[in-house]
Amino acid sequence: MQQQSSKPALLVMDIQNGIVSRFANDGSLLVPIQQAVETARKQKIPVIFVRVGFSEGYPEVSPRNKAFSAISSRGGMTVLDPSTQIHESVKPQADEPVVTKYRVSAFAGSNLEVILRAHQIDTLILCGIATSGVILSTLREAADKDYALTVLSDACLDADPEVHRVLMEKVFPRQADVMTVDEWISKG
């Protein structure tokens, strides 16, 4: 069991227009994420939004990167593009940071770790899209950086329900507490 900390932050990852439109056509799928954001705000837990986006001309994208080189060849997903803006359903408040990353993990090429250190955050609560992408990559890197971790299972989405289930039931519990948003709220 992980030691509880008084310095948690909620990471809302890749809940941006271009990703939400591919994974969550049904607006009800975003309700647990909205509940997590509302609860964090009420409990004065910092909410940090993480998005993926690239500079014009895609200087961050290597042709060896299968996923991102496909994006650079078809265009879009630049930092000013509507597809990289945080989805209206969880619109950030003025004092909530929006971190831009250049790879799958929330830490990759972003200022996330600087923000966490500045606020002495040592516990991360993870939610977002996709379980097999940003959640998995961020969880692994955060665990290696010795953050205490909670994953909100119903506030994470993946295109493959079986992959989501295996990660939540078999992989993530080795490094994080896995619980629903309701369980997290009742615990808090």
Rank of each mutant, 00 (worst) to 15 (best):
M1H: 08
M1K: 06
Q2H: 11
Q3S: 15
Q3G: 15
Q4H: 15
S5Y: 00
P8K: 06
N17T: 12
G18A: 11
V20I: 10
S21F: 02
S21R: 08
R22Q: 09
A24S: 12
A24P: 13
A24N: 08
N25D: 14
N25P: 10
D26E: 05
D26M: 03
S28N: 05
L29I: 04
L29W: 00
V31G: 15
V31H: 15
P32S: 02
A36G: 13
V37C: 12
V37K: 06
T39K: 10
T39A: 14
A40G: 14
R41Y: 05
K42N: 04
K42A: 07
Q43F: 10
Q43T: 04
P46D: 06
V47N: 12
I48R: 00
I48H: 00
I48C: 04
F49R: 12
F49D: 05
V50K: 12
V52Q: 07
G53D: 12
F54N: 02
E56Y: 00
G57M: 11
Y58F: 02
Y58A: 03
P59Y: 14
P59S: 13
R64P: 03
K66L: 12
F68E: 05
I71E: 01
S72A: 12
S73T: 13
G75T: 07
M77L: 15
T78Q: 10
V79L: 07
L80F: 06
L80N: 09
L80T: 08
D81H: 08
S83K: 00
T84S: 11
I86M: 08
E88F: 11
E88A: 14
V90G: 04
K91E: 08
Q93F: 10
A94V: 14
E96I: 13
V98T: 13
V99S: 06
T100C: 15
T100F: 14
Y102N: 02
R103S: 15
S105R: 02
A106L: 13
A108D: 03
A108S: 11
S110R: 03
N111V: 11
N111Q: 08
V114Y: 00
L116G: 04
R117A: 11
A118C: 03
H119Y: 11
H119W: 10
I121R: 03
D122I: 09
I125A: 09
G133I: 13
G133L: 10
G133C: 11
V134Q: 05
L136E: 09
T138L: 07
L139W: 13
R140Q: 08
E141T: 11
E141W: 04
A142N: 02
D144I: 10
Y147M: 05
L149R: 01
T150D: 01
L152W: 00
A155M: 12
D160G: 12
E162Q: 14
V163K: 05
R165W: 10
V166H: 01
L167W: 00
M168V: 00
E169N: 14
K170Y: 00
K170E: 06
K170C: 01
V171M: 09
F172V: 06
R174E: 15
V178D: 08
M179Y: 01
D182E: 13
E183I: 06
